[in-house]
Computed example of a mutant assay.
Amino acid sequence: MAQPRDFLALLKPRVMSLVVLTAIAGLVVSPGHMSPTLAFFSILAIAIGAGAAGSLNMWYDADIDGVMTRTAKRPVPSGRVDPETALSFGIGLSILGVSLLGLAANWLAAGLLAFTIFFYAVVYTMGLKRWTPQNIVIGGAAGAFPPMIGWAAATGGISIESVTLFLIIFLWTPPHFWALALFKLRDYDNAGVPMLPNVAGERATRIQIFAYSLILAPIGVAPFLLGFAGPVYGVASVLLGANFVRHAYRTLKMPDGDPKMIPAKKLFGFSILYLFGLFAILLGEGLVTHLLSAFGG
């Protein structure tokens, strides 16, 4: 019988935590104004939507999750939650999250959330993931929408600033997941998922990882250059970006067939710190600005 922790696992809480962080950052640094209550319910709705997408992903991917060591213990492939329950849970949460965001904020933000769920569950999970080695490049857009949704919730619109936040996550996703795919290559091969290392080889993957890191690093600094992030973010984004490139370069120089894949593992770990650090600092600066503005008023 399914336990509450199994339904929590369906929500992909680690992924959800990053979604929530980036959505809050988008909401806080935007020029819009929301009451704390409406802001809370807006973020809650985005979190529910992220959980819905995770549940739908686990429902559809149960067959390949069961043959991969990283995912075999998930609730559906392990038999703790039956597929129909995961599907119903995901659909119900999707309706709840989108409706709540529309009522708490606006229907543009709700529409973006609905599109994000659809893109992740249908376009990426049901289509791209099993069809093309560029799956994570295109599918990564789903994970890049949360700060844009947060911005739209507060302002009712989309701007160059929110697009910039989208681009940071969009460009971060391929090197992040390809680093994982390098040292989990056998898992993806057994599951028949055409991740880039399985199709194009390790060398081509490492080259693309490095190329993306060279594009990502300056885009990561863009919020400071565009004036909606402060000097702390500016310095941190330069340092974090330089370290991302350093790890990507070491991965590039990694010997073919390296059994330990230490540089790739370090890049994967650092990539999480990179994205978390950027958006945590962005959020912190935004909160300080709001507090100073309130105190000054």
Rank of each mutant, 00 (worst) to 15 (best):
Y60P: 07
T85A: 14
M58N: 14
V76M: 04
G97P: 12
G51C: 03
G97E: 08
G92L: 12
L103T: 12
A47C: 04
V81L: 01
A39M: 10
A104Y: 01
S78W: 00
L103C: 07
V67K: 10
A50T: 13
T85P: 06
I64V: 15
A105H: 03
P77A: 02
A39P: 03
L87C: 13
F89Y: 15
A105N: 05
A72S: 11
R80F: 01
A72V: 14
T69A: 14
A52M: 11
L56M: 09
A47H: 04
L103R: 14
V67T: 15
P75Y: 03
E84D: 15
W59C: 09
D63Q: 12
R74Y: 04
E84W: 15
P77V: 00
A39Y: 03
A62L: 06
R70F: 07
A105D: 02
D63R: 09
N106C: 03
L56W: 10
D63K: 09
M68D: 08
G97C: 11
M68V: 06
G92I: 12
T37N: 10
S55P: 12
A50F: 13
Y60I: 03
L100K: 11
T71H: 08
R70L: 09
V76W: 00
L56Q: 06
L56I: 07
Y60T: 02
G66C: 06
Y60Q: 08
G90V: 10
P36W: 10
P75R: 07
S94M: 10
P77C: 00
E84Y: 15
L103H: 10
N106E: 03
I46R: 07
G90K: 10
A39E: 02
N57L: 03
F89C: 15
S78D: 00
A86Q: 07
K73G: 05
N57H: 13
K73Q: 12
D61Y: 08
A50I: 14
D65E: 09
L101N: 06
L96S: 12
F41G: 02
P36E: 08
D65P: 04
T71S: 13
L96C: 14
W59I: 01
P77N: 01
S42E: 00
G51N: 10
V81A: 03
P83E: 08
G102A: 07
N106I: 06
F41T: 00
L38I: 01
L96G: 11
N57T: 09
K73Y: 02
T69L: 10
L56G: 09
G51I: 12
S88V: 04
A53V: 08
V81W: 00
V81I: 13
V67Q: 05
I64K: 08
Y60F: 15
L44Q: 00
V76H: 00
L93C: 13
S99F: 04
V81R: 01
G102I: 05
T37H: 09
L87M: 14
